[in-house]
Design a binder for these strands. Structure first.
Lengths: 331, 331
DNA sequence: CTACAATTTGCAATCGGTTGTTGCAATAGC
DNA sequence: GCTATTGCAACAACCGATTGCAAATTGTAG
């Protein structure tokens, strides 16, 4: 059906092995024949069959990417970065969306494994005790979750959180509320710890609600909890929750900014578009994606050094319209 | 490294061919041996090598999906639907995001072709004259673009558009504005035609701006054009543009609803979360995705009947907070 | 008990490449 | 001028599964 190596060999009067070498290991073939072969291959429209190549070489030139939810705007930038970086390296990307479902995460990973040279798992929801099953599928790189015995790209929320709390404290908010993300989420435990620390350091009172799923609806629910408790400043686990919160508060006539300040996390493209625009902690998703690709390829190439490497990226606060000075005390 | 067919054969004392048959063509093998083989395979953790299978059978069990921009919330539901449907059918999905870049569309499709059994191209931006190159990669199913000589799942915007114009007319808007999407977009030409038709039918005056890229920033730009021209009702090419428009109008103190009504298209998850919530034309992306999977698999299976089939889906208006009665005439 | 049919299993070729090894020829060295 | 060396290309085995065909086994009828 399509042009094979053998066809090119026949056309040039050479053997398949020579053609193969001319294309993939150029030094082993005479310069003149090499060019002749390449020209013929190009003209005939020869494209190597990846399946056949995989069979012998053992490598797929594909990397697998598992994300909890493509619809959450935090992930598309990561996905794009992974694709871009992978393309540069001559790899393609197999994406799986597991709809925030921990069990699917492992299963999809296992199914994928045979088709890819390595796996990148973003914000894994897999519980600690089953993490082994994921790691067994090596090479695996975790993004947004620290696993001491595995390679990972992690995002240190401490700086961003500290900036956020300082920002609110500076605006005169004596008490702030943190809306927790999913119970199992490593990110959430990290963010929670960071906000607790920062509040303690700044002498700001902290209350917490949640856990909430990283979805708009959860934010909507959170809104009524928040408004019932006379809080003037909220930091949400992520932008989704923050946006849902704002939507509901808007609806109830509570003014974001003047009445209540809101800070999201992720700095997703949506944050600039909300009303008012959302102050958010920027999380370098693109950088994380690109770094993860590099790591997983290193691992796939057999680098021992990378097996437990941890790349750490930093966060910072982006101030927009959703944070304002604390309203004057009502009484 | 991993368990192969030969390993299972050795363990059971049978030949590889028998093992192969026991697993894939059960009737050709004695019931007793079949069970013995299956048990052994399961215990040994045998998983067939997809590359080897592809080589002989010619089928990859993978379908390719090309979308213009994952970050546009219109696409994730489609992607999810495609993945879900594909999984049910025992296929995996290879996704490519082409960043709205027509040239990439063809290139990525070509690269993918050898790894997949069929291609689904959503909202193709490829110009008419190069469409051949895409169709050559058959089987290909187009979503959201009608191509007479190829299979496609198209979404008829006429109904939704008519409802939108009727809705605005009923609210007393004498003149509405349509913000065009990308020049090359088939969707846009269809929507444009539909809105022109609907306005003519309803006796509503129509002005048009654009083209605009389906991005928030474009909507922001559009806002100033719109506000400069005393328009009280806008229908945007998609929700992204509508949301950008609203963000900017909000910022400028123009009240969405009372001062100006806005209708988006796509009914993306964001529309319920904007402020105010965005009236939008619902486009059945999930249904389209699932239908496309079924079509492409039929084509891959060699069905002649499906080669130029066109599935047509309908749209309808979802009214939310961004549309209100026309403001009383200023003078 | 033989003969023949039906069922079950094994052999071997094949898919399209990759790669270690060998054969041959041209060049260098003495 | 003859052998040692190097360079180039061909041969053949192999990756892991599938599949047509032949062989072997079992069953059945005469």
């Amino acid at each position: 059906m399509s042009v094979t190596l053998a066809d090119v060999a026949r056309a040039t009067g050479l053997s398949a092995s020579t053609v193969s070498r001319a294309l993939s290991d150029p030094d082993k073939v005479n310069a003149k024949t090499r060019e002749r072969i390449r020209k013929a291959a190009r003209e005939m429209g020869y494209v190597p069959n990846p399946a056949a190549r995989t069979l012998t070489s053992g490598s797929n030139d594909v990397i697998g990417l598992i994300v909890p939810d493509i619809a959450n705007p935090f992930f598309p930038p990561i996905i794009k970065a992974v694709q871009a970086r992978a393309t540069v390296k001559g790899k393609t990307v197999l994406i799986a969306d597991v709809d925030e479902h921990p069990a699917d995460e492992i299963q999809r990973a296992q199914v994928m494994r045979k088709r890819v040279d390595g796996l990148i798992v973003v914000s894994p929801r897999t519980p600690e005790e089953r993490l082994q099953e994921l790691m067994a599928l090596e090479p695996v790189v975790f993004v947004n979750r620290q696993v001491p015995t595995a390679a990972s790209v992690i995002i240190d929320n401490a700086d961003g959180m500290r900036e956020a709390v300082e920002h609110l404290a500076a605006l005169g908010h004596p008490k702030i509320c943190y809306l927790n993300g999913p119970r199992r989420s490593w990110s959430n435990s990290q963010r929670q710890r960071a906000v607790q620390q920062a509040c303690a350091d700044q002498g700001v009172e902290l209350v917490e609600f949640g856990p909430f799923e990283p979805q708009i609806q959860a934010g909507v629910r959170a809104a009524d909890l928040v408004s019932a408790s006379k809080i003037t400043a909220v930091i949400a686990y992520d932008d989704m929750i923050a946006l849902g919160l704002m939507a509901r508060l808007n609806e109830r006539g509570i003014r974001i900014g003047p009445d209540i300040s809101v800070i999201g996390i992720d700095d997703s493209p949506m944050s600039g578009m909300a009303y008012p625009t959302l102050t958010s902690i920027h999380v370098p998703g693109s950088e994380a994606g690109a770094a993860a690709v590099d790591m997983v390829l290193e691992l796939a190439a057999g680098s021992e050094a990378a097996t437990t490497r941890h790349v750490q990226l930093e966060t910072r606060l982006i101030v927009r319209g959703s944070t304002s000075p604390a309203p004057a005390r009502a009484e």
